[in-house]
Amino acid sequence: MKLKDSDWQGNFGYWQKSFIHANLMMIGYSAWQGFLQHGRGVIVCDIDRSAIAPNNTGLEVTQFKSQFIAEQELISSIQAFSLDQELIAVLVQAVGNYAPDKEIVLLMKMEHHLEINLFQNLKIFPPDCYAQVSRRWEEFQPCLETYTK
């Protein structure tokens, strides 16, 4: 679900695609790690504004913060994001129905802009992302900073 008329539409219309492509392994890793620890949930990526800067070619590593919000904590945790009730309902339904071993629910946040995605038909599944990142941690670690509530 894309937001209308926002900064997110910069960089030729959709910079998020290249961000997701560059960081899918870490997003999948975080999704599977969160599922193993807490059950179903959503990955929240808090992305710095520099990710959408016109001079960002997408080749640089874009640091971001990642948090897994478990399904049982979802409504209370996302109230701080000021989502309208319709989007909250969509997010709750997506988290309640996705297949954690094959799909990812992702909420991307940049300042007050939000985008919710449900990734299906992935080329690499979250358990595989987790295994690969775990084996090659030094290669992936610089791009991710996890945070807690």
Rank of each mutant, 00 (worst) to 15 (best):
S134L: 13
E115N: 09
A89C: 09
Q79M: 13
I20M: 08
N23Q: 12
V42K: 01
F19W: 11
W137Y: 14
I20N: 03
V90D: 07
R49D: 12
L91Q: 02
N55Y: 15
G34D: 00
P126C: 14
Q79R: 12
M1D: 12
D101L: 15
S30G: 10
S134C: 12
A31H: 06
A131L: 13
A94G: 07
E60R: 15
L87I: 09
A89F: 01
F19C: 07
I75V: 10
N11Q: 10
L36F: 02
I124H: 04
D46N: 09
S18R: 13
D7Q: 11
P100H: 08
Q141Y: 13
C45G: 05
Q120L: 10
E60Y: 11
Q93N: 08
L74R: 00
F35N: 02
A99W: 07
L122D: 01
V61P: 03
G34A: 02
Q33K: 08
G13P: 05
R136D: 15
K102Y: 02
F68Y: 14
Y130P: 00
I104P: 01
I116H: 05
Q141H: 13
I88L: 10
E138N: 14
D5E: 09
T62C: 10
G58T: 10
L3N: 10
D5C: 08
F125I: 03
S134I: 03
I124Y: 06
K149E: 11
C129F: 12
P126A: 15
N23T: 06
C45L: 06
E145W: 10
I52P: 01
N117M: 09
D48P: 00
A80Q: 12
D48L: 04
L122P: 01
T146K: 13
N11L: 12
D128N: 08
A53E: 05
Q141K: 15
Q72S: 09
W137L: 15
E86P: 00
E111G: 05
L3E: 15
I69T: 00
F19H: 06
N23G: 09
W137H: 11
G13F: 11
Q132C: 03
Q63P: 04
E71M: 07
A131S: 12
Q85I: 03
E60N: 12
W15F: 14
C129Y: 04
G10L: 14
I75Q: 07
C143A: 15
L91I: 05
S18F: 14
P100C: 11
A80D: 08
I88G: 02
V92F: 13
S30H: 07
I47K: 05
H38G: 06
D48H: 06
S134H: 07
D48F: 04
Q79Y: 11
Q9I: 07
A31C: 11
E145Y: 13
Q141L: 15
S82Q: 08
N117E: 05
T148M: 11
G39S: 12
H113F: 06
I52L: 13
Q141D: 12
F140N: 03
L24K: 07
Q85T: 09
I27Q: 02
A89R: 15
E139C: 09
N117D: 06
I75P: 04
N121Q: 12
I47A: 06
R136T: 13
Q85C: 02
Q85G: 01
F19P: 01
Q16D: 12
N23R: 08
